[in-house]
Amino acid sequence: MPSISRKGLSMPQSPIRKLVPFAENAKKKGMKVIHLNIGQPDIKTPQIALDAVKNNDLTVLEYSRTEGSEAFREKVAGYYAKNEIFVTANDILITTGGSEALSFAMGSIADNCDEIIIPEPFYANYNGFATAAGIKVVPVVSKIEDNFALPPIEDFEKLITPKTKAILICNPGNPTGYLYSKEEILKLAKIVKEHDIYLISDEVYREFAYDNKKHFSILQAEGLEQNAIVIDSVSKRYSMCGARIGYLVTKNKEVIATAIKFAQARLSPPTYAQIATEAALDTPQSYFDEVREEYVSRRDLLISELKKLDGVKVARPQGAFYCIAELPIKDADDFAQWLLEDFRVANETVMVAPAAGFYATEGLGKNQIRIAYVLDKESLKRAVHILGEALKSYIG
Rank of each mutant, 00 (worst) to 15 (best):
P12H: 06
Q13D: 12
R17S: 08
A23G: 04
E24D: 13
K28D: 02
K29F: 13
I34V: 06
N37S: 14
G39W: 02
I43K: 04
I48P: 00
L50K: 12
A52C: 06
N56K: 09
D57I: 15
L58Q: 12
L58F: 15
E62Y: 04
Y63I: 06
R65H: 15
E67D: 14
E70H: 14
F72T: 09
K75P: 03
G78Q: 09
F86P: 00
V87A: 09
N90H: 14
D91V: 07
I94A: 15
I94H: 09
T95L: 10
G107W: 12
D111L: 14
P119Q: 11
A130T: 08
V137K: 09
V137I: 15
V138T: 10
A149M: 08
F156R: 07
T161E: 06
K165M: 06
G173F: 08
P175M: 05
T176D: 04
Y178L: 02
L179G: 02
E184N: 02
K190A: 01
I191N: 00
K193L: 02
K193P: 01
D196V: 02
Y198Q: 00
I200Y: 02
D202S: 11
V204G: 06
E222P: 04
V230S: 12
S233R: 00
S235I: 01
R237Y: 02
S239E: 03
M240V: 10
A243G: 02
R244P: 00
A259H: 07
K261R: 13
A265Q: 12
T271W: 10
Y272T: 13
Y272H: 14
L281G: 10
D282V: 13
D282K: 15
E290H: 11
E294S: 07
S297C: 05
L306F: 12
A315M: 13
K330E: 09
D333N: 14
D334A: 05
W338E: 00
L339E: 00
R344Y: 03
N347M: 05
V350R: 01
A356G: 03
F358M: 11
A360N: 10
G363R: 11
L364C: 11
K366I: 04
L375R: 06
K377I: 07
K381L: 05
G388P: 00
E389R: 02
I395C: 03
